[in-house]
Nucleic acid binder design. Structure first.
Lengths: 251, 251
DNA sequence: CGCGCAATTGATTGATGTCAATTGGAGTGG
DNA sequence: CCACTCCAATTGACATCAATCAATTGCGCG
């Protein structure tokens, strides 16, 4: 299931998180050092592995260093719904720090590497450096803002528009941590996984992808998505990036 | 639009929030006093009033004292989606504290009364009493957990099941702040507003309400919902209350 | 070469939306 | 107390989007 695990200190490992923060606020040198001093252990996961189990009581919070992960809800009838997609720099399981019992599981969408930070270390750092504490807090409220946008998509958008919206969102998020540029991004997600994100059947996702291709808005070949006309795509998707909080401000 | 506004200190006003916290963690006497000392102004709103405007930059966070409020997303084509329903004791706009620019609006679902607390007072209290700070943080992560459950409902549940699920959720949340008992609750929500919660048309909501009535699971008369068989309803809805975090634990 | 998974296609079904009326109660003014 | 209005709830007919079922294709890999 897992191939390695090493105990160490954050140092360079944690740079995606620093980018995530720096994109949204200024971070002093000492603050940066404090974050880099967080104790952590890293672990690799293969595509499909469970990173955190539903109903478990984690003692560490998990941060994605590499690859994609997803929060997954299991329904009684076996259906699945992904409630969030996480990319490098996302402090995925800060929620578990305060919620104690996981209401969902987290799984690896692609092969990925994650860092685990003990809860006490996070709490202590947040008390010692309240501004960093607020940035952790912010990270969870940005997750919530994204979830609100998803609720809007699921409730009131058509399948095509929803997919278009998601592509806009993923591009901007990946771009914010330097993992996408020139309107292209690697998206290691099968159409079947995409169907669990969009709340559709895999068959319909296929049709909808083809429709976006036909209208010349995107190309999607072997896990690489290219946005052929960003302005037209955002307009088509009625996409307003406010909720991603991609503005550097005192928080 | 608004009929009164007074500047004061939290004191007894804020008791729904204390109940919200005490249901989930132990709160010391001094902590309670610190929360009650928060400066606030209260304001009344009528059903339909906008409490916080989308794209505004609030300088205070808003807490519901009385009545129901909802987070509302407006789509380009005029459609609306409610992303959260808030009841007394919900610190609705703690999100705005860290996100700076509102990505949605908050409106009054029923006539209601809200308290506004200046951001600096919240930040200062969180630094002074880190445990209270974590409870504020927890409040936003519970919002997020509820939103995840809603994503699951919107994506993978049928209309009837979704409505049943929502009724279970609302009952437990209202019960947790002593606003519902004996399987009955006041639900001041029209079928049309319900349609913006469930992401359905108002017509279909009507059909679905009738179906739940026909199967003997609920009665819903003039804003009062009675759950006729709670166990059968939760089973029908595949409802797992974990995500509401109704357990008293050190946070 | 053959296996397995992802993508694709076609035919059909089913759930929910839309449009258009109708009913019923609560308030309001005469 | 009676029109009258307004809004919420309700109903029916029909249209549409997306699900389901069942193949088929294409590709990477041992």
């Amino acid at each position: 299931m897992t191939f390695d695990a090493e105990q160490t200190t954050a140092s360079a490992e944690i740079s995606p998180l620093l980018r995530f923060f720096q994109r949204r606020d200024r971070l002093g040198r000492e603050e940066q050092a404090l974050i880099e001093a967080l104790p952590l252990r890293t672990q690799r996961f293969r595509r499909g592995d469970e990173i955190i189990r539903q109903h478990s009581r984690p003692l560490e919070s998990c941060l994605i260093l590499d690859g994609f992960a997803a929060r997954l809800l299991h329904m009684a009838d076996g259906k699945r719904q992904i409630t969030a997609v996480h990319i490098p720099g996302d402090f995925v399981d800060l929620h578990g720090l305060l919620l104690k019992v996981m209401d969902h599981s987290v799984t690896a969408v692609s092969d990925c590497r994650a860092a685990f930070v003990p809860h006490p270390a996070i709490i202590q750092l947040a008390e010692q450096a309240p501004h960093i504490g607020r940035l952790f807090w912010m990270s969870t409220t940005i997750d919530a803002a994204i979830q609100r946008a998803w609720i809007g998509c699921l409730g009131r958008r058509s399948a095509v528009t929803h997919l278009a919206y998601l592509i806009c969102e993923m591009y901007l998020r990946l771009n914010a941590v330097d993992l996408a540029s020139d309107n292209r991004m690697g998206l290691p997600v099968t159409q079947s996984e995409m169907s669990d994100i969009l709340g559709l059947s895999a068959v319909h996702v296929n049709r909808v992808v083809q429709e976006l291709r036909r209208t010349g808005l995107i190309s999607w070949v072997k896990g690489e998505v290219t946005i052929l006309d960003f302005d037209r795509l955002t307009e088509f998707a009625d996409f307003d990036p406010t909720y991603l909080n991609l503005m550097r401000q005192p928080r």
